[in-house]
Design a protein around this nucleic acid. Sequence first.
DNA 1: CCGGATCCACAGAGATACTG
DNA 2: CAGTATCTCTGTGGATCCGG
Lengths: 120, 120
Amino acid sequence: MTYCKFESALEIFVGKWKPVILLRLFNNGAMRFSELQRAIPEITKKMLTQQLRELEYHNIVHREIYHQIPPKVEYSITEYGRSLSGIMQAMNDWGVTHIEHLNQLYGAERVGELETDQQN
Amino acid sequence: MTYCKFESALEIFVGKWKPVILLRLFNNGAMRFSELQRAIPEITKKMLTQQLRELEYHNIVHREIYHQIPPKVEYSITEYGRSLSGIMQAMNDWGVTHIEHLNQLYGAERVGELETDQQN
DNA sequence: CCGGATCCACAGAGATACTG
DNA sequence: CAGTATCTCTGTGGATCCGG
């Protein structure tokens, strides 16, 4: 039973898209729904909505609705969500360090550098 | 295109069970299939096999087969896999720090402490 | 008995509309 | 613009079977 909470912890931000979404929000600060969509082209609206709602439920992400036409909704990392920065940083660092290995695996076309800082 | 490799990086250890499996292997060193099964009761043999094969494919986990009866197969973190220790550590630390918050969310029955060290 | 492989059932993810 | 609704299809869970 010693690991049960570790698994609960994982549920909060593990999922196919949550880390990717969080990285964007960590690096860019508040982002609109459409901005996130453009930043993560492979994700569908449905998944984006769903994952954001879950993150909001877990108090990782804040959802700010601007009642105007056309509608505008902004998402941002909450104060509590910032506690995940260590994990995000570790994942980011790992990605940076192991790009070559990944390239070997996937025969990568281009080596994009990953954001390492967290402004805002 | 700056984030593409971050996502590739995630692919390697994202999956419903991979982080949990990795935590076990990080903390316990080499483990038999049945040991992993007992350590993660909720996982099915099928999923355990599948996830381990994927981890093996990505060179994160090593599979050692002992040709004997009854059969014995041991899994361990590869040298390359050890590079994930930073991420595992960060996730583990986060889980430890935020147990109370998790308890509030899930109305936890018992607060199990998480492994923090990585002997072996 | 151990470490799987295989088959079936279902829930969640992906794709494509449509709406306030 | 920021989502829903709907349908399809992959991935997950469960049970059983198998070779050593």
